[in-house]
Nucleic acid binder design. Structure first.
Lengths: 249, 249
DNA sequence: GTCTGCTATGTGTGATCACAGATAACAGAT
DNA sequence: ATCTGTTATCTGTGATCACACATAGCAGAC
């Protein structure tokens, strides 16, 4: 192999925080971003976007050399994701995206309804006008993609994610948001199998109806209507995946 | 310092798995337990038992030498707990138990009601006779401790935890259980401030009433009654802590 | 006394090395 | 051809070293 390009010994590690007496508060807080944080964010993005299939394996060193760092930051990022059930390391010393048996999928769906329902109720109550507009924006994007002659599943999936996350962010409950994100990390790999299923998946789905109902309820500040629509959205998407019979066990 | 006792270089690392042709399946699966796993479990236990106060700081090397390993396993364990919000590493390079502002505490209480309520409903539906008995067992232990002349807060707290966890385990939803455990890791440090508040805390609290109601509902398989009692338990315990006005912000 | 600048120590982070064990490829025997 | 024992390679895990930076302690100037 003899891979030696781009020596990892650069040690960018952290920005210098500049503090000059006099404009103390003027300078924006520079948040420390470790390499492990970056790798963590990258892996999260891959999982959320459904660019990793359940059961897919990889190695620490492989990832490390692909990113251009040593194995160390990858180790830390992976161990965080393992703690969140987004990855798993088998007793055989092998890292992989966890499988998704039906039972686990149904459990996750149940938890999602509970937690995302809670976030939706809170968001309807707490969302600012700007945040409502943001949700509406993504709802339009999703609907527009659906009405295209040849809708792109991956694009629709991204708009779907943005819509949901904009809603949950508007709840202003950071811990709840993080837990929901952890849930999406787990279902991400199978969402892959959903929206990319066929070109008609987006068209024939009822997601756009639920989304419209959510936005409508958000606009008139009706928490329970929003929750009902959201749960229907989650449930029907789950039904579609379950009905395809591709989940093991 | 020159700390050199108990050289960490022993590398116990993993048990040998013995496979003899013929009694293949007879031998129990030996689950791999890395050092990092052990440290992780230890830290979890400390947090769950409320033996760490919010804001308390520590160092990787300090913990490592206390346990007798290198810093490496501690690093991994800590990074997992950081991912779960059970610990945090400040931009100043300092690891500590996160603070608990009122807003975060109230958010956690809300999430707990949702998730633990869900687990309770599932448990009432799915619990075996043995699991019901186990819950009843811990309920009796808690009640007994309360009726003592001088109840021990720490002991009562442990029985309280065992009661709740026995209930949630009976739901047979492993992911949900793990998420609830992650929640308790976060509230553990302040539960410390609760049950250890005064000798009368256990006596004057209404926890035993709620617990009895939960067990009764479990016995007659009434999910909603159980959930209502559980939510009341969580909420009133939270009210007590909030009323003491010791949480910052 | 109060403040400023410097130094020393200790921290988390990243890289590198060492090791046990798992996997796969292959040789030989049946 | 199928199985078995062996070897070679690669994996995650743990230990150790190196480094940038934060903090605390102290000395010096006003």
């Amino acid at each position: 192999m003899e891979h030696k390009t781009a020596s990892p010994a650069e040690s960018v590690e952290g920005e210098k925080e500049i503090r000059t007496a006099g404009l103390d508060a003027r300078v924006g807080r520079i948040v420390r971003q470790t390499l492990a944080d970056q790798v963590y964010a990258d892996l999260k993005e891959i999982l959320l976007a459904g660019r990793a299939a359940p059961g897919e394996r990889f190695t620490l060193r492989g990832l490390a050399s692909a990113i251009g760092t040593s194995a160390m930051p990858v180790r830390e990022a992976v161990s965080r994701l393992v703690a969140e059930n987004a990855l798993e390391v088998l007793p055989n010393r092998a890292v992989r995206v966890p499988l998704m048996p039906r039972a686990r999928f149904e459990e996750l769906r149940l938890i999602r309804c509970s937690l995302e329902g809670l976030a939706t109720v809170a968001a309807v109550r707490a969302a600012s006008a700007g945040e409502v507009a943001e949700v509406e924006h993504f709802e339009r994007l999703f609907a527009a993609e659906r009405e295209k002659a040849e809708p792109d599943g991956a694009v629709a999936m991204r708009h779907n994610k943005d819509l949901h996350f904009a809603l949950y962010r508007a709840a202003h409950l950071p811990t709840l948001f993080q837990m929901i994100e952890a849930l999406w990390l787990q279902i991400g790999p199978v969402l892959n199998l959903d929206f990319r299923a066929g070109p008609d998946r987006v068209r024939q789905g009822e997601a756009h109806i639920r989304h419209a109902a959510i936005v409508a309820a958000l606009r008139i500040r009706d928490p329970e209507a929003a929750r009902t629509a959201l749960v229907a959205d989650i449930w029907s998407a789950g039904d579609f995946i379950l009905s395809r019979g591709i989940l093991p066990d």
